[in-house]
């Protein structure tokens, strides 16, 4: 177990193993997203009250899931980097942040578009919406901190600390609809309880959620690989690798 984790921490080993994993996650992501969006947008039945505007759930919910999961992954990677000094963890955290920020924005934007016909307003300062906006600012803060230092090590440590402290916001987002009166409804889709919708609406949502996660994993593997090449550019194995590839194309 420990040997495996230490191996995973070696950039070279990670670079090799991720090459094998990556195509599977890309294939799963494309398949699930195509099936899920066709099913959700075209074939799932309309809602009895909202009509077709409910279909935004097939983008909104997976994006909101991912926005929170990516932040947690970033915080865990930050902890691993700070305590065990594993550089790959920091590289992964660095490449995750922009996708997390994008997903938070998608969740906020799709929610606003849905809010206009459903609630009668696109924004309300309720606990769920506000804590989600704070998540977006935390992501932007993490990205900005990484850019603000000339030394890479200081930048990584500062970003890790912000991610670890910012993770406090995640339970607040999750439970905001239970703790306070909010305009946003409680969760329709959780891993633990019976879904608040029939199977023909719920199944495409599950497929979309899995598709979003596969996409996140595939993209993170891909971007971590390029980050490894960038940061380890003066290492022997990277130079050999590049030399080999250049000769192959000749």
């Amino acid at each position: 177990m420990w040997a495996f984790i230490h191996k995973l921490g070696s950039p070279k080993w990670f670079y090799t193993i991720s090459a094998k994993l990556q195509p599977w996650f890309w294939a799963a992501a494309v398949l699930l997203l195509v099936v899920g969006s066709l099913w959700g947008l075209a074939f799932a039945p309309a809602d009895y009250q909202q009509g077709n505007s409910f279909r935004i759930i097939y983008v909104h919910v997976p994006a909101a899931f991912l926005a929170q999961s990516i932040f947690i992954s970033m915080a865990v990677s930050g902890l691993v980097f700070m305590v065990w000094k594993i550089k790959v963890a920091d590289m992964a955290a660095a490449v995750m942040a922009p996708l997390g920020a994008a997903m938070t924005f998608v969740a906020l934007f799709s929610g606003a578009v849905w809010g206009v016909p459903t609630w009668g307003t696109w924004w309300m300062w309720d606990a769920r919406l506000t804590s989600m906006l704070i998540l977006l600012f935390l992501y932007l803060g993490v990205i900005a901190l990484r850019g603000a230092f000339t030394s890479r090590d200081s930048a990584s440590r500062a970003a890790s600390v912000l991610a670890m402290v910012g993770v406090i916001n995640i339970p607040i987002i999750k439970y905001s609809v239970d703790w306070w009166y909010t305009l946003h409804q409680p969760a329709s889709f959780t891993l633990t309880s019976r879904p608040a919708m029939p199977t023909e609406m719920w199944l495409p949502l599950v497929i979309m959620v899995l598709g979003f996660y596969s996409f996140f994993i595939a993209l993170t593997l891909m971007r971590t690989r390029s980050e490894i090449l960038r940061r380890e550019a003066n290492k022997r194995w990277v130079q050999d690798l590049v030399k080999g590839q250049v000769e192959e194309t000749r």
């Binding site: 009250q49 608040a196 029939p198």
Partner: peptide, 10 residues
Amino acid sequence: LARHDENYMP
């Protein structure tokens, strides 16, 4: 403002 509940159905 209308408040939607968490239930969806055809």
